[in-house]
Nucleic acid binder design. Structure first.
Lengths: 233, 233
DNA sequence: CGAATATGATTGTAGGACAATTTTGACAGA
DNA sequence: TCTGTCAAAATTGTCCTACAATCATATTCG
């Protein structure tokens, strides 16, 4: 039924990108559910699967562990990270201030260069239109929305910092449970945030963003224990 | 004149910590000025210097690159990171909200468990005493102060996030220019922050911390171009 | 059935090999 | 003296092999 889809590395690719290739393969696999949270990643299997050396795989593991995408336990190996309820709460607290900052900066800088054009272009494609939105499309819209805000904000390090917040993991872990009402709510929030940014009102933008994330956090944290990794304390 | 101080790896150390050993050696070297910002790190030199394999060194490079401590350019190698003025500003913006959050959380949780005891103990050792403080002692106090606040705040991921903010780099790059007046000012700020936290006033704590960092940022950003990496745009 | 043990799998680390690429240093010409 | 060119040397990226330490699993024994 299913074709053995072996992703061998395109060998005409330039030297120097092997590790990145491995990382992307793994991230992709996580996002598409091919590697489930908690699953162990065996180095040698991956070397065969992708036709790269074990050294490159290990480097990719280190990188991803530093970014919090996997857990690396000495002598035991690497597993796709799963967040506990506590960690999820901590993560949202951080996300709230970082994305709040991003929204504030975006509102401050909406009128420099072609920021307004960029933002409006994004907003035209993700603006709520009332009709039902499939989960994976919403996820895509959501990502684009948040990334554009960070981008307009103009703080490059902030982009990295937010990227390193293991959001993909959380979304995979938790996102499939999102119901239509949540999507609806999020889209409304987005509209409020977009308004504030387009108005160039930093305070209102930051607050709207923080409210948005706090709501989302409340909903996520109300999920049953089964959605989270067991607390290990 | 100078003794050839070769830090060979203590071989009775348990298996599984080689990479961490390399990282620590490098971070130490950076902090102590043995590796200057901008300096290139040659893999093979390090393998000989520390008696570890090249693979381990490469893994350490990846880790540090992910943490922003070094720049890793394909085919060219690894250099100790140097921040541009722009990056420094971006960094302070992020630090302001993250440490502001830490201070807020600390004030909220100062009365749970033995947090108050821990905080007061820290504060007894770093509290300003009026007499002149050497730069490196101040740096140590400063680190302890900020880390304790994060710790009392109780958000473990926040600790990681702040650690990954390349503060060591910035301090090395910029810190040696700190004059007594800056140290004085910082110590005053610390007292204000500590008061707010001990009073359990989250809003005041966060604001005091943010003010502290904003002042520091203003001072750092007023330094001459020579303190920063050339802007590459 | 539970505990001890043997067996196999996987990791951590060292080290060699070799082509791709960059850096260095020498050299000729302006 | 400066500058561009080119070969030599150094360094990187990647793969490979090897082997002990450690973990996971199956098996045997009580």
């Amino acid at each position: 039924m299913s074709v053995e889809l072996v992703q061998e590395r395109n060998s005409d690719q330039r030297r120097g990108g092997t590790v990145d290739f491995v990382v992307q393969h793994l991230v992709d696999g996580i996002l598409h559910g091919r590697f489930a949270p908690g699953q162990r990643l065996v180095a040698r299997d991956l070397t065969e699967e992708m036709g790269v050396s074990r050294g490159s795989v290990r480097e990719a593991f280190r990188l991803m562990a530093a970014d919090g995408l996997v857990d690396l336990v000495p002598n035991k190996g690497v597993t796709v990270r799963r967040l506990s309820r506590h960690q999820t709460r901590d993560l949202f607290e951080i996300r709230e201030v970082l994305e709040g900052l991003a929204a504030k900066l975006a509102a401050q800088r909406i009128n420099v260069n072609d920021n307004r054009a960029m933002f409006e272009s994004m907003w035209r494609t993700v603006r709520p239109r009332g009709h039902h939105l499939a989960w994976d499309i919403f996820i895509e819209h959501n990502r684009l929305f948040h990334r554009t805000i960070v981008s307009v904000g103009g703080n490059l390090l902030l982009k990295d910092a937010i990227d390193k917040l293991q959001l993909p993991i959380m979304m995979v872990q938790v996102g499939r449970m999102m119901a239509d009402e949540n999507i609806q709510q999020s889209e409304n929030d987005h509209a409020t945030i977009a308004d504030a940014i387009l108005d160039g009102d930093p305070g209102r933008a930051a607050e709207a963003m923080q409210n948005h994330l706090r709501e989302l956090a409340d909903w996520v944290l109300a999920l049953p224990d089964s959605a989270f990794k067991r607390e290990e304390n």
